[in-house]
């Protein structure tokens, strides 16, 4: 096999371009989840929010023939499920892990049901795709240009959104409240920061981002919906938050590393001839998970485990000490 066909200058650009585009749904959801976890909530419902966002955006784009409205619908349903998660986990203070899994079950059932009710017996419905837009000048930069600046509009919006949310968390007053609430809700409460309000907002943002991730998957890549189209990306997003040590920019980077290994394994198969190769395909398929594991273990061993928000997963009730 010729590695130059994978890592040669021209090939590498194509590989990177493919990885960032396909990693985007996971990246959006992961950055949103970072905010949620920094606020002290472990939201395992990401997969459900992503899936619901995918269906909602597909349906609106299909019937209203508008990609923009579709994307908004994806965000809206994500925010809605974020609100459900917040109601259960913050307002009622029920067990977060179970809330998240319940949301996944709910979403898997309802999306499959809705899709089947609407399109049962028909051919696979599709929507028109959106064209790639080359950003003038920037896309001519060798290397980086084609990777980052020859993508579709949703891609640019997603990058902007992800960075905005990262900045929101690290550079704003609200972000400070989020971190305070996640680290020590009692102390934050004493400092007149509303724990409930902050966590609610964090979950609405996290849900919206996951919903947007679903919209990007459907509107930006597939132009169609299938049962369980999210295919586990929400679970990967949860893993990536921890992998990125709750730092939104690292999480974003981690999502692209994951996307890169994923794209790499497919590329290696394409170059090595696939059918002729004797290496089991499962080894390639396991690569993204194994790489993520190794990097994460290495990072934890190297840095210690201080990164986890102090109150992650613990419900907070005013006046009750933990």
């Amino acid at each position: 096999m010729d590695w130059g066909e994978i890592f040669g200058p021209g090939a590498l650009v194509v590989l990177l371009s493919s990885s960032v585009a396909f990693a985007m749904p996971t990246a959006l959801a992961a950055v949103g989840e970072t905010v949620v976890e920094r606020a002290g909530i472990l939201n395992l419902g990401v997969e459900g929010m992503l899936l619901s966002g995918a269906l909602a955006s597909f349906l609106v784009a299909y019937y209203a023939k508008s990609v923009a409205l579709g994307a908004l619908a994806g965000i809206a349903i994500g925010v809605g499920l974020g609100a459900l998660m917040a109601f259960l986990s913050v307002t009622l203070g029920t067990e977060q892990i179970i809330n998240g899994i319940a949301i996944v079950l709910l979403a898997q059932g309802i999306t499959a049901f809705t899709f089947e009710e609407l399109f049962g017996g028909e051919e696979q419905p599709t929507i028109g795709g959106i064209a790639d837009v080359d950003i003038p000048l920037l896309h001519e930069i060798p290397g980086v240009g084609p990777v980052l600046f020859e993508q579709n509009v949703l891609f640019y919006i997603s990058v902007a959104l992800a960075i905005a949310v990262a900045l929101l968390l690290t550079r704003t007053r609200f972000g400070l409240s989020v971190r305070a609430v996640g680290e020590s809700p009692a102390a934050a409460d004493a400092a007149a920061v509303s724990v409930a309000r902050t966590r609610w907002l964090a979950l609405l943002i996290g849900g919206g981002m996951a919903g947007m991730g679903g919209a990007v998957l459907v509107l930006g890549q597939l132009n169609l919906f299938e049962t369980n189209v999210s295919a586990g990306r929400g679970w990967i997003a949860v893993a990536l938050v921890i992998f990125g040590r709750w730092n939104p920019l690292l999480v974003l980077g981690g999502a692209f590393v994951f996307g890169f290994t994923d794209a790499l394994q497919i590329r290696v198969q394409a170059v090595s001839g696939g059918i002729a190769s004797t290496v089991p395909t499962e080894i390639f398929a396991a690569l993204p998970y194994v790489v993520t594991l190794i990097v994460m273990v290495a990072a934890t061993v190297w840095a210690g485990r201080d990164a986890q928000p102090g109150a992650l997963g613990a419900p907070f009730r005013k006046g009750v000490s933990a």
């Binding site: 259960l88 009622l92 319940a102 079950l105 709910l106 059932g109 309802i110 499959a112 049901f113 089947e116």
Partner: peptide, 18 residues
């Protein structure tokens, strides 16, 4: 449709938690 069956446990769990 079988998809209903997928959704119903989720509904029950959510309401039972509440």
């Amino acid at each position: 449709p079988y998809a209903i069956v997928l959704a119903i446990p989720g509904v029950f769990v959510v309401f039972l938690l509440i």
